[in-house]
Write a protein that binds this DNA or RNA. Structure first.
Length: 481
RNA sequence: GGCGGCGUGGCCGAGUGGUUUAGGCAGGGGCCUGCAAAGCCCCGUACGGCGGUUCGAUUCCGCCCGCCGCCUCCA
């Protein structure tokens, strides 16, 4: 059974499910006011792998991720560009799906938009007012955090020390600087909704409580996001649920930052690389491999070198698929993640067990990958020795386990071979057969210029598309642009 | 000020109280190959500093140094 670090207890503990066969998982999504950067990408990849692994373990997963499409930043951008808020939101929501698709991330089962839940949010705010845990001021409705049992659970700080460190600007109408807006009173020119407590728009922390409980129900299993969301966002979501006496997430998962030049990647520091830039410069699978080479809770530094490193590693995996010509297995590996392999015996069984053991330990993807690379080596050794069957079984296992990690290996590029390339290969084969190596090498250079690498093997000539252009990752992801 | 985390061989990155080791990349040597590519074999002997516990610590404890994050919108 999967054991995960739980932010609420600061310990790795078994993921105890509400329903033993089904995982309900809510991951905070994006505020759609700009294009996603590779920090967002890391979050998608981490949760994508979590999800694929749960499915591989035989569990059904209900994955929800929200779209925050009403927010200060969106309003600001729309105003600056003379567009409407829905236009801005739609543009960047589309960018989200485009980029996450390109990274091979499975889409969530539900992607609720905040604006579709305003009525339910109004109900919640009304109820919190009725319970007297919220109060009105001239600027909106606030939750009185002093009325919430155990506020500070996720921050791991008592109310007093949170107050001591608070850097929030002082609002004399608020009872405490920590009280947060459930509802922001309407300002001219901003999107507003009518409500019994005054026209306005919802505060950010309210949408996620409402949507998670609505779609996943009380006491859902797992709630996650980046570490920055622990406080105040998740703390405040939880506060509202507690104030309502409704059971909230059973387990909390948070992933670490992507760093750049030793600092957290962020819009304000201008040290970010967008997902689009990343996948334009290198095989999108490289970034996935790069991310998985570190444990999800640690900070990772992304540099041109680390990207190249990952590209090389990926090349090694693809080479295995090529050597064993596992095209059909590859196709299978993408869709059928469940345990046909698990039923295997001997070597295969050991390999899968080792993989699962590591993944069960708080998603130790670096360890799981070490096992995979080790299997790559052993498969090659066996094949060199002529133990074809065992070698192939192991290689297939590698392909399947990579599939669980969302890494679709490639045996070749047969599909995009055009006629000219085919002819050059045939011509070169003929030249080699007749011992005309000068001609043969000239053709190889020609193909290289077209982006193809050749492998002469006993089974014939293999072509390999060059995906490695880490060197083109030239803009240092450091410092102001 | 409070809280959380980190410091491992050229780089990235796991792990562990003591026999033999993560793994990847890079580098050197060799095998294979017409030459390559892919693959294989061999080579580095590392755990921030100072103390302590211990027969023995990189791994446990304390202190120190350095780094990062959160406490504000943020993945």
């Amino acid at each position: 059974m999967l054991r995960l670090y739980d932010t609420a207890t600061l310990k790795v503990r078994p993921l105890e499910l509400r329903d033993p066969n089904r995982v309900s998982f809510y991951a905070c999504g994006l505020t759609v006011y700009d294009v996603p950067h590779i920090g967002h990408g890391r979050g998608w990849l981490v949760f994508d792998v979590l999800r694929r692994y749960l499915v591989f373990s035989g569990l059904a997963v209900h994955h929800v991720s929200n779209v925050t499409n009403v927010d200060d930043q969106i309003i600001k951008r729309a105003a600056a560009e003379g567009r409407t808020e829905p236009e801005v939101a739609a543009e960047f929501e589309a960018a989200w799906w485009r980029d996450s698709d390109a990274l091979g991330v499975l889409r969530p089962d539900d992607t609720p938009r905040a604006t579709d839940y305003v009525d339910k949010m109004i109900d919640l705010v009304s109820d919190l007012l009725a319970r007297d845990v919220a109060y009105r001021t001239s600027t909106g409705v606030y939750l009185d955090v002093s009325r919430v049992e155990g506020y500070g659970l996720l921050a791991h700080q008592p109310l007093e020390s949170l107050l001591a460190g608070a850097r929030v600007e002082v609002d004399p109408e608020k009872r405490s600087p920590l009280d947060f807006a459930l509802w922001k009173r309407a300002k001219t020119g901003e999107p507003t909704w009518d409500a019994p407590f005054g026209a306005g728009r919802p505060g950010w922390h309210t949408e996620c409580v409402v949507m998670s409980l609505d779609l996943l129900g009380e006491g859902f299993d797992l709630h996650g996001g980046g570490v920055d969301l622990i406080f105040p966002h998740h703390e405040n979501e939880r506060a509202q649920a507690i104030a309502e006496h409704r059971a909230f997430a059973r387990h909390w998962i948070h992933h670490g930052w992507v760093m750049s030049g030793g600092a957290k990647m962020s819009k304000s520091l201008h040290n970010f690389v967008t997902v689009a830039e990343m996948i334009e410069r290198s095989d999108p699978r490289s970034y996935r491999l790069l991310v998985l080479r570190s444990q999800y809770r640690s900070q990772i530094e992304v540099t041109p070198t680390s990207v190249e490193d990952a590209e090389k590693g990926l090349g090694r995996l693809d080479a295995l698929a090529r050597r064993f010509e596992l095209r059909e297995d590859l196709a299978l590996g993408r869709s059928a993640l469940t345990p046909s392999v698990v039923a295997g015996e001997g070597l295969v069984r050991e390999e899968v067990d080792r993989f699962c053991e590591r993944m069960d330990d708080d998603l130790d993807t670096p360890g799981a990958l070490a096992g995979i690379f080790d299997a790559v080596n052993r498969a090659n050794v066996m094949a060199d020795r002529g133990e074809e069957e065992e070698a192939a079984a192991l290689a297939r296992t590698v392909v399947t386990l990579c599939g669980v990690l969302g890494l679709a290996l490639r045996a070749d590029e047969g599909a995009d071979l055009d006629e000219a390339v085919r002819r050059l290969v045939a011509e070169r084969d003929a030249a080699r057969a007749s011992g005309d190596y000068g001609r043969s090498d000239a053709i190889r250079s020609e193909l290289a210029a077209l982006g193809w690498t050749l492998e002469d093997t006993a089974q014939g000539t293999r072509l390999l598309r060059q995906h490695t252009h880490g060197s083109r990752f030239t803009r240092p992801p450091v410092g102001p642009c």
